[in-house]
């Protein structure tokens, strides 16, 4: 309720304090983008399937949010993305939430350092993210699944073991690095190309919101 106060012959109207917004770690813009990024992680599978490319591109949304809204938003996107995948596709994907966290955090850090301002920087960021994600996923695959997943990567692990005679654990790590070293740089290049096409006004809004 408004109250009237007279000060220096001027009537000043005082209103009760307006409740502050609820404290949360993400801007509204980031909150609105994350569900679309999660959906993008799943929807790009249709594009990859149509093109019959030997990659997943299931982290493009996570990398995009991390670059636009910062590492924390990237981490949240990774967690939500793998949780939703676990609910919609297979509960086995819950186990890979730490990998999504690594991708979101590293992409956010790379974005903060300006790696996505050039094509070369994006490829370099993709390689670093790819190796880190591969090592994280290899640890999970070795600990939970004996080094093999029921996918193309599992067959690649067997092929590497057959060709180089290394242990299953080493073959699992090499297979993961080979897969992710192709997938993540391509994802980062795609994000770089999208950022180039994005209206500057929108990019600036994200940067302001993340600051």
């Amino acid at each position: 309720m408004a109250m009237g106060v007279v000060r220096n012959a001027l009537r000043v109207v005082c209103y009760p304090p307006v409740p502050l917004p609820a404290r949360r770690p993400l801007s509204t813009l980031a909150l609105a983008l994350i569900p679309r990024a999660v959906a993008l992680n799943l929807a790009l599978g249709a594009v990859v399937g149509a093109l019959k490319l030997p990659v997943y591109l299931d982290s493009v949304g996570t990398i995009l949010v991390a670059v636009l809204a910062g590492p924390w938003a990237g981490i949240v996107t990774g967690i939500v993305s793998n949780s939703v995948l676990g609910l919609l596709v297979s509960p086995a994907l819950f186990a890979f939430i730490p990998v999504a966290i690594v991708i979101g955090w590293l992409a956010g850090v790379a974005g903060t350092l300006g790696a996505f301002r050039s094509l070369a920087g994006s490829i370099a960021a993709g390689l670093v993210i790819g190796v880190a994600a591969a090592l994280a996923s290899a640890v999970i695959v070795i600990a939970l699944m004996g080094g093999l997943t029921a996918s193309g990567t599992g067959l690649l692990t067997i092929a590497i073991r057959a060709t180089f005679g290394v242990s299953v654990d080493s073959a699992a790590k090499i297979a993961a690095v080979v897969t992710d070293a192709l997938d993540k740089p391509l994802s980062c290049v795609l994000v770089y190309l999208v950022l180039e096409r994005l209206p500057r006004r929108l990019g600036a809004r994200f940067r302001r919101a993340a600051a």
């Binding site: 609105a32 679309r36 959906a39 993008l40 093109l51 391509l186 190309l193 994005l198 809004r205």
Partner: peptide, 18 residues
């Protein structure tokens, strides 16, 4: 062909989020 297919999808989703 990948940017031509994935680009409009991603840009559309980002703009919609605003």
């Amino acid at each position: 062909a990948l940017p031509a297919l994935a680009g409009p999808l991603i840009v559309g989703l980002v703009i919609e989020s605003e």
